[in-house]
Amino acid sequence: MKDWWIYKGDRSTDRLGRLGAHRPPWRSFDGDIDERYQVPSLDDDRYRSDRERGAGYIVDEREAELVNSALYLRRPLLVTGVPGVGKSTLAYSIAQDLGLGPVLRWPITSRTTLRDGLYRYDAIRRLEDANLKRLEDPAATAVPAVTASPGEAIGKYLQLGPLGSAFIPTERPRVLLIDEIDKGDLDLPGDLLTVLDEGRFDIPELARLAEHTPTVAVGTDDRGGKARITAGRVSCRAFPIVVLTSNGEREFPPAFLRRCIRLTITSPSREKLLYIIEQRIGREAAAAADGENGIISAFLKRRATGALATDQLLNAIQLRLAGAWTAPEDLGRLTDATMHVLSGPDAT
């Protein structure tokens, strides 16, 4: 481990203070912090799976160097690799290691738009609730009544998405996982540029009310979270740690790529596989899987013909622990059942 690293993968000490001392002048953000807004803690039992997923990631030196480069430069980290090598888990490892709260995850599909990640406004539900209220109290339309302010009324139906929640101004950055961005529309990477460059975005529905209701409380992507937005604008203070994953299925525009730190995660070596098994399942399981005729050797031999995911190896080991295909002559049947090649000449 190197002295300049902030992220080390071991959660040994709080090292985030270095970010403030080494802020690039061109990546400075000044959003006003709302002291009432609280980022959930990963120690909360509701986020136990996030905590365990992050703690189980094994980071190597090259990965740590590029993650830390992205941290210092306040730039997104574009992580590429075959399915199952731990691209998404890296984001959980960063959040766990630096104590930054639950990961804000934005899964991308072919229909995803930028607004999906920023916020959702349920105008239809708002209209339905208004109609229901009139039906329950017909006199309400004829007799003026004390009602909530326009801002309070609309805030009930507006919720920040994972991207929008990542830009809520806080002292410490949030970790945002934009998962499988290569599945999105061709325009999505370009649409992201302005938000990622400026560290802010506007919500027109709230901006129109700013003169009468300057501050509005809205929901966030955290469970039960609330944030106060002023003048319809969300501006970050600490730029989020943005991890974008890609399976390498397509190229991205040069304007997008030049703003990213790029990391390609390669398939783990035998030594790293042993360490992963030891951390995830146990030392005895790792020892049993090793050897010239062990499951790891079978996995590496099959991986030489096409891409395999590490969790396929873990599945095979778990089956043996459950008493399935434990005889030496059953190894071939076990690999056939659990280690289908994902890509390459032998993929089906």
Score class of each variant (00 low, 15 high):
I229N: 04
L127D: 07
D32M: 07
D222N: 07
E249T: 12
L127A: 13
A166I: 04
A123R: 11
E329Q: 14
L193I: 12
S110R: 12
R51Y: 12
V175Y: 01
G101L: 04
V103G: 07
E284Y: 00
G291P: 03
G31Y: 02
S269Y: 06
D14Y: 08
S343W: 10
T194K: 10
Y157V: 01
T266Q: 14
L206W: 04
S41N: 08
N315A: 13
D45C: 03
H22P: 02
K226C: 03
L244Y: 00
W4P: 12
G306S: 07
S110P: 00
S149G: 15
R111Y: 01
V234M: 07
D185Y: 00
P328W: 04
N68R: 08
S267I: 09
Q159C: 02
I6Y: 04
T213D: 15
E171L: 05
Y121T: 03
G291C: 05
R228E: 11
G101A: 09
L334M: 13
N315K: 06
L273W: 07
A231R: 12
R200F: 00
V218I: 10
V103A: 06
D137M: 12
L244N: 02
P144K: 10
A153E: 13
V143Q: 13
L98V: 09
L308T: 08
P107D: 13
V218F: 02
L118I: 08
I178M: 11
P189G: 13
Y92P: 05
V103I: 05
I277F: 01
R105S: 10
L331S: 14
R105P: 07
D137E: 15
L273M: 14
S246Y: 00
R15Y: 06
D202S: 13
V175A: 05
A286F: 03
A327V: 12
E63S: 13
D330S: 15
S49M: 11
Y47S: 08
N68A: 12
